[in-house]
Design a protein around this nucleic acid. Structure first.
Length: 554
RNA sequence: GGCCCAAUGGAGAAGUGGCUUAACUCAUUGCCCUCUCAAGGCAACAUUCACGGGUUCGAAUCCCGUUUGGGUCACCA
């Protein structure tokens, strides 16, 4: 008679430790009451997903505000999908949002006493625990091939019963230890499955920090816990790691709710206390068919966090936006706090919506404008340099060629109570400011000309421009400058009284607005621009006159 | 299909049985201000909370059913 212990020894002859050794190696954390230990556990399968950023933001927030620990664990057990270097990249991107782990995998090194924090390096731990399960009859080797599994499944589907490896369908569960020994010694490939005691007719009550209490069927599947490549599956690794890393609250996407019974049974089988769970709603998007679907990297550029970097969005804006999705009361709070110090906001799971929010680019843009408007000119310069160096060579040349000049441009109506909010991102900045640069202005005019309002003929335009060139004094203050322009316009038959013009448009050539527009288009090539007075200040009298003369020469 | 979760305007949402003729924010539209835009100010935008039934003196709020949407059913996480 061969015992379970003998089978366990046969499978893991080198494993001599038992769980008590691990319990001692990873003692309970000595943290104050209420301190939460959370973790972000990405797979290194590509760039940081916006949804993952959302999750890590919450994890980080919860740990920080309770005085706990936030750590990162790399879940690299799927060797087939792994992308070289993406683990490091994930950490670097998180850092750009000020999400820095207290502990764990940090990209190029590890920090903390609960490691290793990379799952592929935790094989010895998993083996100890699996051996324990094997010895106690809660796990067994399964020799079924993919073909056999497919066969079981198709039979189940035909019979319209629940598919999966469970109960009578779990063939290898019923093998004798003699048969197991024989097949292992023969070298048959196998995986190790958990032996479930559950019954899906019975329900278990579960508690979730965001969903509250609900009932769900017990697990009855004999799931694979140890793959033929020697690595654990997610379910097993999650239970094992979050136990020994002493996670108090597991925060993850809603897609995991369905496998919660598996995790709970695993915790029970090991005699461990399960952590608290918080299953977060998934960020959605309206798909091509008009239905909501998960934000996907394949279809939605904004699903990859890199999109926001490439377009020069300030990181705070994305975080701020994500916080409005996370907590419904955040918006009111951040308005009351003038879009500042969002880290002081107290997050709570109970204020989280249960339904996945549609990603709203418009709202992100709103926050981005608010944030950029609050930056100083020096900060804007740094950001522009930083951004353009990586993503926009033309802009980089422009800004770095004369940083002081750039500061003057970007500072127009910035240092005031209600600063201008023209910019929401650094992407596209080149086109917005290029007219400030002489060569770029000349090139533009050469190629595209200037497009004025059709109601004025060239003669009128020249008349206006000549008068402005000769009489408009930009050495005056803004108010004086405007009165000056108004007087010049009125002299030429324009009116400063918009109501009068509306009542009797025939009596005037146009309004002062029209005068300003002629000047604006001449100087900036655009219908919209920052405050004209300041534009002229930045360009200087000489350059303004030069641009006017170019038109007069036509 | 089974199981689970959800359902308030274009979007995010407040709302936990009477204070709701449904807050607030974004977007949109109009007006005012104004050199343009942005900002700012003012207004408009759900007679109604997916639908049907019930409980109640009273329901967006509680219960039941239906519908719709999402998730999940791997040696992927």
């Amino acid at each position: 008679m061969i015992t379970d212990k003998q089978i366990a020894d046969l499978i893991f002859p080198d494993v001599n430790s038992d769980i008590s050794v691990l319990e001692a190696r990873y003692p309970n954390r000595n943290l104050p009451n209420g301190a939460e230990v959370t973790r972000f556990a990405p797979s290194p399968t590509g760039f940081l997903h916006t949804g993952s950023l959302f999750t890590s933001l919450i994890c980080h927030k919860v740990a920080k505000q309770t005085g706990g620990v936030f750590y990162v664990r790399l879940e690299d057990t799927d060797t087939k999908r792994e992308i070289e270097g993406s683990g490091l990249q994930l950490l670097e991107q998180l850092k750009l949002f000020n999400i820095v782990p207290d502990e764990g995998y940090l990209g190029d090194h590890e920090l903390g006493n609960y490691g290793p924090y990379v799952q592929s390096q935790r094989a010895d731990i998993y083996k100890i625990v699996i051996k324990h399960l094997l010895e106690n009859g809660r796990a067994y080797p399964c020799f079924c091939s993919q073909a056999e599994l497919d066969d079981i499944r198709s039979k189940q589907e035909k019979a319209k019963i629940i598919p999966g490896y469970y109960g009578p369908f779990a063939k290898c569960r019923y093998l004798t230890n003699e048969e197991r020994k024989e097949r292992i010694e023969r070298g048959d490939p196998f995986v190790i499955r958990f032996k479930s005691n559950g019954n899906h007719i019975r329900k278990i009550k579960v508690h979730d920090l965001v969903h509250g209490d609900f009932e769900i069927a017990q697990n009855d599947m004999d799931i694979v816990i140890y793959k033929s490549d020697g690595l654990p599956t997610y379910h097993f690794a999650h239970v094992c790691d979050d136990h020994f890393m002493r996670t108090t609250t597991v925060i993850r996407g809603e897609e995991w709710i369905a496998s919660l019974p598996i995790h709970i049974e695993l915790f029970e089988a090991l005699g461990w206390k399960a952590p608290n769970y918080a299953h977060l709603p998934v960020i959605m998007k309206i798909g091509e068919n008009g239905n909501k679907r998960k934000l996907s990297k394949r279809h939605d550029s904004e699903a990859a966090v890199s999109y926001f970097f490439e377009n020069g969005y300030p990181g705070e804006a994305l975080i701020m936006y994500l916080m409005t999705i996370a907590n419904s009361n955040f918006e009111e709070w951040i308005f009351a706090h003038k879009f500042e110090h969002m880290e002081e906001f107290e997050f709570s799971f109970s204020k989280m919506s249960l339904e996945g929010a549609l990603f709203d680019m418009g709202k992100l843009n709103f926050f981005a404008r608010e944030i950029l408007a609050k930056k100083t000119k020096e900060e804007m310069l740094d950001m522009a340099l930083d951004y353009s160096k990586k993503y926009d060579e033309k802009l980089y040349d422009l800004v770095s060629s004369n940083p002081e000049y750039f500061k003057q441009i970007i500072n127009i109506e910035r240092e005031k109570e209600n600063p201008r909010k023209d910019y929401e991102k650094l992407g596209g900045l080149y086109d917005l400011i290029s007219f400030f640069y002489k060569d770029l202005y000349d090139n533009y005019v050469k190629e595209n000309g200037l497009t004025y309002n059709e109601k004025f003929d060239l003669e009128t335009i020249k008349l206006v421009l000549k008068a402005l060139r000769d009489n408009l004094d930009i050495a005056l203050d803004e108010q004086g400058w405007f009165s000056n322009m108004k007087a010049i316009g009125e002299e030429l038959g324009f009116t400063g009284d918009r109501k009068a013009y509306k009542a009797n448009p025939e009596a005037y050539k146009g309004t002062i607005g029209d005068v300003a527009e002629i000047l604006r288009i001449t100087l900036t090539t655009k219908r919209n621009s920052p405050n004209l007075y300041y534009v002229m200040q930045v360009l200087g009298k000489e350059e303004c006159d030069r641009r006017i003369n170019l038109v007069l020469a036509k």
